[in-house]
Design a protein around this nucleic acid. Structure first.
Length: 204
DNA sequence: CGTGTTTGACCGGCGC
DNA sequence: GCGCCGGTCAAACACG
């Protein structure tokens, strides 16, 4: 009896040891991920600070020179938002999961970019006239460029459930291809937050 | 059958 | 005025 009990105890200890090892390695991976995210956050923050300074200097120079160039830029800024979404290279769909419900109403091949551009309208509310254009970046085909026009006049489904989210980005679908950036102006390089690692981790 | 997607046609703005 | 190009429409089609 005692021998049998000893054997089963040894088995349990081995099991626990294996489990511990697994947890330790998992912990290491998570630490690594956290470290990478922290690095990227620091880079992003520096980028945002830099951008803010640039914007200030541009505004000052514009106001001291002429208004002709400034007006269109402000017009674009107030009406459209650009979001970059990193997807898997083999993902050919032009769907950007941002939590809203979009209805596709057109697709076109645009000059200077072999990838087609898709046109979507918000279909969550009948009176919501928000539109978005989605196109693969000509430089990096794993990046989708979504351009939003207008503002939603209804809440995001995630917000109804008390979930905070990125602008136009909910928690519902983005984790699988999580990567976003915003820029109100086409001429300004968009800040890109690449978190695809998290997405791949989710899948595994 | 209702809803969403596809795709060719059409329209308007812009540059020459 | 003409042609190019981006954006939109709408009929046909697919799918659950």
């Amino acid at each position: 009896m005692d021998v049998q009990r000893n054997v089963s105890n040894k088995d349990k200890i081995q099991e626990i040891g294996a489990e511990l090892e697994r947890l330790v390695s998992e912990n290491k991976e998570l630490c690594l991920l956290l470290h990478m995210m922290n690095d990227k956050y620091t880079t992003l923050r520096a980028h945002v600070e830099k951008k803010r300074e640039e914007m200030n200097s541009v505004n000052q120079s514009c106001s001291s020179h002429n208004l002709i160039h400034r007006q269109p830029i402000e017009k674009i800024k107030s009406k459209s938002t650009r979001i970059l979404v990193r997807t898997k290279e083999d993902n050919t769909s032009l769907v950007v999961k941002d939590g809203y419900h979009w209805r596709k109403y057109g697709q076109k091949i645009i000059k200077d970019n072999p990838s087609p551009r898709a046109y979507f309208r918000c279909s969550m509310a009948p009176k919501c006239h928000v539109k978005k254009k989605v196109q693969r970046s000509a430089d990096d085909k794993s990046v989708l460029v979504a351009t939003y026009q207008g503002e939603h006049n209804h809440p995001l489904p995630g917000e109804l459930a008390g979930v905070t989210s990125l602008p136009n980005v909910s928690s519902t679908g983005l984790m699988s291809e999580l990567s976003c950036s915003t820029s109100g102006d086409r001429s300004l390089p968009a800040v890109n937050l690449d978190l695809t690692l998290c997405g791949s981790n989710h899948e595994g």
